[in-house]
Design a protein around this nucleic acid. Sequence first.
DNA 1: TTGAAAGCGGTACCAT
DNA 2: ATGGTACCGCTTTCAA
Lengths: 344, 344
Amino acid sequence: MVQIPKPPAPEPPAPRSVPTSADVARLAGVSRATVSYVLNNTSAVRISEPTRRRVHDAARELGYVPHAAARSLRAGHSRTVLMPAPSFPAGPLYSRFLDELMGALGRLEYTVVQYGSVGLRGDEAARAWAELRPVAVLVPGSGPGPQGVEILKRAGARAVVTLGHEAVDGAHALLMDHAIVGHSAVRHLHDRGRRRIGVVVPVEDGLKVFSAPRLAGARRAVRDTDATVTELPLAYDERAAARLAARWDSLGLDAVFAYNDEYAMLLMRALQDEGVRVPADTAVIGADDLMLGRLLRPRLSTVHLELPSGRDLAALVDRAVHDPGAAPERHEVLGAAVVHRESS
Amino acid sequence: MVQIPKPPAPEPPAPRSVPTSADVARLAGVSRATVSYVLNNTSAVRISEPTRRRVHDAARELGYVPHAAARSLRAGHSRTVLMPAPSFPAGPLYSRFLDELMGALGRLEYTVVQYGSVGLRGDEAARAWAELRPVAVLVPGSGPGPQGVEILKRAGARAVVTLGHEAVDGAHALLMDHAIVGHSAVRHLHDRGRRRIGVVVPVEDGLKVFSAPRLAGARRAVRDTDATVTELPLAYDERAAARLAARWDSLGLDAVFAYNDEYAMLLMRALQDEGVRVPADTAVIGADDLMLGRLLRPRLSTVHLELPSGRDLAALVDRAVHDPGAAPERHEVLGAAVVHRESS
DNA sequence: TTGAAAGCGGTACCAT
DNA sequence: ATGGTACCGCTTTCAA
C-alpha cells in the first residue's frame, strides 16, 4: 500500500495554549504586575490611561481569562460556597428554595458550587469537599458527622451549615423537623373528630428522612388521646395503592395522612375507585400544598410548608463567614399550617 | 464604667492555619516530595514502609487535605465538568436526568460542579465559567453564543456540549427539539378525528423555550390538512383556567393539547367544572407522562418523553475530552411517544 | 530511597 | 507610573 505523504500543514494549527497574564504583559509591552493592576482596577496604584488601554486591548485580543485556582491560591481564600447535591429527589418546593438561595448568595458575591458527591460517604465526602477549600459549606439532608465538620473547618471553611433534621456539633443548623408536619396533619384530623388514623409511609428509601419524622409527629399528636395511628407502607405506584385500598375496610380507618399531596392523590384515587367515600368514610390530608391538591375533587386538605427564605439563609452564611468564631446558630425553620379544604 | 481587664487567654486559641504538605513533611521528618509520593501512591518511586507509615500518621494527625487548586494549577488541568444551573424550573423528568448524569460522570472520575450563574448573561457567564478552567462544559437550555464557546475553548475546555433546542458553532449538541412533542400530540388528536385543536401556551416566561417549539410542532402537524390550531395562552392558576373554560364554547374547539400533564390537569378540571365533557366534547392530551395523568378521570392521554440517558451523555463528554479535535457531534435525542388513555 | 528546586498563574510588596 | 520578585501549595524532574 502506498503511503500518502502528508503535505506539510500550511500553518500548523498551533494548539494555542491558554493565555496567561504573562502573555498579556508581553503583548502589551508591560510587566505582569501592571497587567494585574489594570485588570483588577487596583486602587492603591495609579496606571496611566494609555497603558490601561494597551493592557485591555491585549487581554481582549488574546481572549485572556484569569485562572481562578491561581488567584485563590495566592489570595489564600476563595468565595466559594460549596453545596453537595442533595441525596433525595428534590421536589418543586425544595428546588425553588435552592434557586432562591443560589440567587441570594450570588448577590453577596459568593460563587455557589453544587458538588456532585457520588458514592462518597461520611468523612470521605467531607474530605473531597475540603479539597476545594470552600469558604462555607452548606449541607442539605443528613450531613457529615462532627468529624466531617472538623475536617472542613481545618481546611479553612469558615462556616458549615447543615440544613435538615438534626444538628451537628460545631456546625450551624437550620433545623427542619418534619415531625411538625405529621403532627399538624394528625391533630387536624383528630380535631375533626377522627380517631382511627392511618399514616402513609413511602417505601422509597430516599424519602425516609422525611417520612420517619412525619410519622413520629403523627404519633405524638395522638399520644394521651383515645385515637390511634396506623403505619401504612406504600409505594408510589398505582397497583400498590389499589392493593392498599382493597383492604381498606379491614383496616377500619376513618382518616389518613398521606405523607404528601402526591401520595394523597394516589391513595385518594385508589380509595374512590374502591368505593370509599372521601371524606365521609375516610378523611384524607396531604402535605406540601401543591397546586394539584386544589384540582382534586374533593379538594385536598393539606399541610402548607414554610421553608426559610433563601435570602435569610444566605445572610446567615454571610454572617458566619464574617465571624467564624461565633457560637453555632440553631434555628427551627420549618413552618407548617393546615390548609383545610374538602377532603377532611 | 469599669473596664474589665481581659485575663490573658490561657492558651491563645491559636488560629491553627490550614495544614499543608510542608507541615506533614516536617512532622514526619521527611521532605515535601516524599509526602507527595506517599500520599499519591506514586508508582514510579519506591518509598520504604516505615516512611510511608510516618507520613500517613502525620497527615492523619494534622487532618491534612490536599489543596485542589494548587494541585490542578501544577498539573495544568483538572477533571472538573462545569454545568451552569439551568435557567428554567427543573421538572421531575429533568431532575432525574441530571442525577443520572452526575452519577455517570462521577463514575468516570469527573468532578461535576453546578455553577450558580446569577444574572450573568452571554459572554460574561462564559468568562466566569472559564475562570474555573473546566475540562468540559455542559450547558442546558439556551447556551452561550459561538463567542462564548470560543472563550471556553481558549480557556482550555476540551469539550463544550449544549443540551437544548439549538446547536452552537464549535460545540457538541444534544438537540431536544420539543416540536416533536407538539407534533405527536396534535397528530394524535387529528388521527382521532379532531379538527379544531387548541394548544395551551403557558404564559410563564421560563417555559417559552419549551412552549414555543411545542406550538410550532403542533402547527406543523396540521399543515396541509383541514384542521386548525388555536393558541391558548394560560397561566398556571385556577382562575385563569376557569376564565378560559368559561369561554370554551365560544372557541368551538373539539380537542386541546395542554402543553404538559400539569397544565392538562388544570385545564381538564376547569373544563369539567364548566360542564364540558372529556373526551366527548373535547379531547385532552398532555405531555411528560407524569404519574398524575394516570390518576385523573378520565385517565389522561399524554406524550411520553424520552430523554437521553445520563450514561450516554457522560460517555459523549468523555469521548470529546479525549479527542478534542473531533468534529462536533450533533444528536437529536428527544423521543416522543403518544400514550393513549381515556381523555382523547 | 530521599531531597533540593523549579515552576504552574496570579498578586502585592518594595524599589525605581 | 511601572517593574522586579517573592510567594501561595503542590508535583515532578534530577541528583545524591
